[in-house]
């Protein structure tokens, strides 16, 4: 028993199970995504303000900003931002309804988690469908 003499004897203490212990579930994903999309939107909001300042700064600065948005990277970022916006909007409404005590039974909770996740993709795609269908037509 030489090892136990040199090392202090530690009692195994119970730990609360951390994220990787749990099987992934829709309820978990919808909660984590709400925070993640919130951070994405906060960063995007800075770009939104930058766009307003470019618009206030005159035609030249605005066209430089519009060119950035229209670039391949700008389009990818806008697509991602619009999905984050759709998700945070739908899931935010879900949270407000839950604050009112609605939809708290386990089957409801799982179902409306999926509504947020799938609905956000559908809503973002619909929005882009509307914009792109009449874009460039005077």
């Amino acid at each position: 028993m030489a090892a136990s003499d040199s090392e202090p004897r530690l009692r195994e203490r119970p730990l609360s199970p951390h994220l990787q212990i749990y099987r992934w579930q829709a309820q978990m994903a919808s909660s984590i995504l709400h925070r993640a999309t919130g951070v994405i939107l906060a960063i995007g909001a800075l770009a939104f303000v930058y766009g307003l300042m470019a618009l206030a700064g005159g035609a030249q600065r605005w066209s430089a900003f519009a060119d950035c948005l229209g670039s391949p990277l700008g389009r990818v970022l806008m697509a991602g931002f619009s999905w984050a916006l759709a998700y945070h909007l739908i899931n935010g409404i879900r949270h407000l309804l839950q604050d009112g005590g609605l939809g708290f039974s386990i089957p409801d909770f799982v179902r409306n988690s999926w509504i947020s996740i799938i609905g956000s993709v559908v809503l973002a795609a619909l929005g882009w469908g509307v914009v792109l269908s009449h874009w460039g037509q005077a």
């Binding site: 307003l52 618009l55 519009a66 914009v131 874009w135 460039g136 005077a138």
Partner: peptide, 16 residues
């Protein structure tokens, strides 16, 4: 934004 048909400076400026 959904009604926007172009990113033209005059159009966006008038909208805001």
């Amino acid at each position: 934004l959904l009604t926007l048909r172009s990113a033209d400076y005059a159009v966006v400026h008038a909208l805001v």
